[in-house]
């Protein structure tokens, strides 16, 4: 392939590209060099830097604000990620996020919370995956690489939160930003396609009570880091010591 070589081996050409990036914006379709053609501005601008290990994405969920009958977060997730297929048996359908109602049998106290992939620091799904399709990005987001997922479902056996679903039937009409299809395992991605554009996950944005906070746990000035530093919070099944990215309050 000549295009990448041009970019890497020729410093003057690289500078030239950088210098013309602004100019290219107004031109639309433009040929920069033989073998390196750019059509649109969106492509012409340099690719993003990618996930950084300096960032650790996390979520804080205040269950005292979470109403039992409300599933706005689930609906928002389904819309954003295109999970609307009809399934005959609900147990065979995908649930990236679900509402769980809890009741303490001794005190009778009831509350409700959303449960999804907890984006573990040491994810069991990544440990057990035979091909390495289950993976964790540098910024802590746990994903399934469906390009190499063979659909063995071992990760589903290993996940203590039942956060993963297997696609049981052929799909069409996916969201262009969220590819998904039959025979692979999938789970909450923290809406990685939004996070990479600087947006919050769909569920966080949709929660009418503002019960969900999303942000960088490593940034001491972020809202989430400040709250975690000052308020009590718990990890679900903290005994497993998986280092969860999702924390709960009020459970």
């Amino acid at each position: 392939m000549s295009a990448p070589q041009n970019r890497i081996n020729n410093p003057s050409r690289r500078n030239f590209i950088a210098a013309t990036a602004v100019g290219a914006a107004s031109l639309g379709a433009v040929a920069l060099a033989p073998g390196l053609h750019l059509i649109e501005v969106s492509q012409a601008s340099a690719p993003s830097a990618g996930a950084s290990s300096k960032v650790r994405w996390g979520m804080l969920i205040d269950t005292t604000k979470c109403a039992s009958g409300c599933d706005e977060c689930v609906q928002a997730c389904n819309t954003e990620n295109g999970i609307n297929e009809t399934v005959q048996d609900a147990r065979q359908g995908s649930q990236w996020i679900r509402k769980i109602d809890l009741k303490d049998p001794q005190s009778g106290r009831q509350h409700s919370l959303p449960m999804m992939c907890q984006h573990c620091e040491k994810p069991p799904c990544v440990d057990v995956c035979p091909t390495g399709a289950s993976m964790k990005r540098a910024d802590g987001i746990v994903l399934v690489d469906r390009h190499i997922c063979i659909g063995c479902r071992y990760c589903m056996m290993a996940c203590p939160y039942k956060a993963r679903s297997f696609v049981h039937q052929p799909l069409t009409e996916q969201n262009p930003q969220v590819p998904r299809g039959m025979g692979c395992v999938e789970s909450c991605t923290f809406c990685v396609q939004r996070v990479d554009r600087g947006l919050k996950p769909a569920c966080v944005e949709a929660c009418p009570e503002g019960a969900m906070t999303f942000g960088d746990l490593n940034d001491p000035n972020s809202d989430i880091a400040r709250r975690l530093a000052n308020e009590a919070s718990t990890q679900v099944r903290a005994d497993l010591k998986l280092g969860l990215g999702v924390r709960y309050q009020g459970i």
Partner: peptide, 16 residues
Amino acid sequence: DCHQPKAGNQHAATGV
């Protein structure tokens, strides 16, 4: 099988 083969990001994803 997984990626949406239709152009334009406008349509609502329905999965079916």
